[in-house]
Design a protein around this nucleic acid. Structure first.
Lengths: 245, 245
DNA sequence: TAGTGGTCTAGACCACAGC
DNA sequence: CTGTGGTCTAGACCACTAT
C-alpha cells in the first residue's frame, strides 16, 4: 500500500456525521480520486483506528459495510484491498461484449472502422456535458461472434477523462475495457429502444435495412464528468438482452 | 407484535455459526414461514439480547444488516418492523405500466381484447412449467397513454397460482397489479428483443408492420411455481426503456 | 511469531417516539 | 418518563496469513 496520508476531513462534512460514515467517505474518496486503485492494500483496522482516533469496532463497521457494498475485499490474516470495479445490473452487464461472447464459448473479434478526433455537435456536446465545437474522440467498431457481426459500437469520449484514447490498440482491448481501467466508473445512464438501422449500420451488421435493431445508448460518468457516450446497435434477430431478478 | 416464541435453533445449523448470523436466520425464518408478516413489530434489541443470551451490539448488527437488505425497517424510538415486500430492478420497474404513465402526468386507460381459458400448447406449457394441454388463463390487453396505444400485453396465467384471474375486472386493475397482490412475487426472468410486429399486433398498436417493436417477454415465479408468462409489445418509436446505475 | 481480520462483550450516552 | 434504536468504547479471544 502506497499513497496514504492522514485523512483530511471534507469541508462539506457535517460535524454530526457518524465516525463510521466519515471513515467510509474517506475511503470512497480515495478510490474515486484514484489515490487508491483496484487491488491496493489499504490501511489496517488498527492504523485507521489511530488515524481517526476511534475504536476498532467503529473502523470494523466501516470496512465491513464497504465490503458488503463490493467496494473492498477483505482477507483474514492478510488485509483489506480495493475490490475490482464492477457495476452490476441487468442491463449494465453487457458492457464488455468481448467477455460475454467468450463466456458463451464463441470466438470474438472486432474491426475498427474509425478512430478520430472530431468537433462536438450541439447534440453531442449536450450528451457529454461540454461546449459545442470542443474536440472529442470518436470510434466506430464492429464486434463479431464466430465471424457474424453482432454489434456496431459508436463511441464518443471526453478527452478530459481519457486523454490517451486515440493511441490505444483496440484490437487488443475494447474501448469499454480501456475506459473501465482508465477512468474509474461512477455510474451510467442508458436508454434502450427498437429502431431500423441506417444504411451504414445495416451494411456493417450485414442485415437488410428492414431488420429491427435493439439499440442501447449509454453515457458513463467518471471523476464527476461524463466520460463517454456510446450507441450500440444489435441486429434484432441475433441479439437479445436477458436477465432475472 | 404477536406470535413470538423463544428461538428454536435449526437442526441444520452449524454450531460454529456466528451469533449475529443465527439471529438473522431466525428472523428471516419467521418471515419466510409467515409467522411474522409485513408491518409486524418484531422483538426489540433488548428482548433478542436476552433471548439469544448475547450482547446488544451483536443483536444490533443482525438487525442493521437485515435493514440494509430491505427485510426490516427500523424507526428510532418506535421499534423494528417487517418491511414491505419489494422487487426492484431497472427492468422490473416497468411492471405497472398504468402507474408509469400516470407518473408522467399522462392519462392511462386500457382495452381488454380477450380474456379466456385455453389449453396450453407445448411451448406455453414449457414456459409455465406445467403439462401440455392443461387449461391456463389468457388475456390480451392494450394500454393507452393519452389515447395512443403504447403497449400490447399478452399474458398466460397458471390457474394454480391465481385461480380468480378470469373473474377480475381489468378495467379497474391491471393484470400485473392483480397478480402482484394475489401472488407474492419471488422473482422473474425476462428477455428483451427487437422484432417486427405481427399483423394483429401492428393493428392493435396502430403502426405499420415495418415499424420495429421493443418486445419484453417475462415470466414470474410465486409459491415456487411459474405464476405467469407475458409478452409485451411496444412500438419502437413511442416507447423506450431508460435507467441508471 | 507478529499482524491481520472475524467476532463478541458489557457497559455507555444520545435522539426520538409513545404514553 | 420509559423504552426504543443509533452510535461508540476499550477491551477480549480466535483463525488465518505472511515471514
Amino acid at each position: 500500500m502506497l499513497k496514504y496520508n492522514t485523512p483530511t476531513p471534507n469541508a462539506t462534512m457535517n460535524t454530526d456525521t457518524p465516525i463510521f460514515q466519515r471513515i467510509k467517505d474517506h475511503i470512497t474518496h480515495q478510490i474515486e480520486t484514484g489515490a487508491w486503485v483496484e487491488g491496493d492494500l489499504i490501511p489496517s483496522e488498527m492504523t485507521l483506528t489511530k488515524a481517526f482516533n476511534t475504536s476498532r469496532m467503529t473502523v470494523n463497521r466501516a470496512l465491513r459495510e464497504l465490503t458488503a457494498e463490493l467496494i473492498l475485499v477483505r482477507r483474514q490474516g492478510a488485509g483489506t484491498y480495493v475490490a475490482a470495479q464492477k457495476v452490476q445490473s441487468t442491463l449494465v452487464e453487457i458492457r464488455n461484449i468481448a467477455d460475454e461472447i467468450t463466456v458463451r464459448g464463441h470466438e470474438h473479434h472486432a474491426e475498427l472502422h474509425r478512430l478520430e478526433s472530431v468537433a462536438a455537435t450541439d447534440k453531442l456536446a449536450a450528451q457529454l456535458d461540454i461546449q459545442a465545437g470542443q474536440m472529442v474522440y470518436h470510434s466506430t467498431m464492429v464486434h463479431f461472434e464466430n465471424a457474424i457481426p453482432i454489434q456496431v459500437e459508436e463511441r464518443w469520449v471526453n478527452p478530459a477523462v481519457a486523454p490517451d484514447y486515440l493511441t490505444q490498440d483496440f484490437n487488443q482491448i475494447t474501448p469499454n475495457a480501456y475506459l473501465m481501467q482508465a477512468a474509474p466508473l461512477q455510474g451510467m445512464n442508458y436508454k434502450l429502444e427498437a429502431l431500423l438501422p441506417t444504411d451504414a449500420i445495416a451494411q456493417m451488421l450485414r442485415i437488410p435495412t428492414s431488420q429491427p435493431c435493439l439499440v442501447l445508448q449509454r453515457s458513463t460518468r467518471s471523476a464527476n464528468k461524463v466520460a463517454s457516450f456510446a450507441i450500440m446497435w444489435h441486429a434484432g434477430n441475433r441479439y437479445r438482452f436477458v436477465g432475472s431478478d
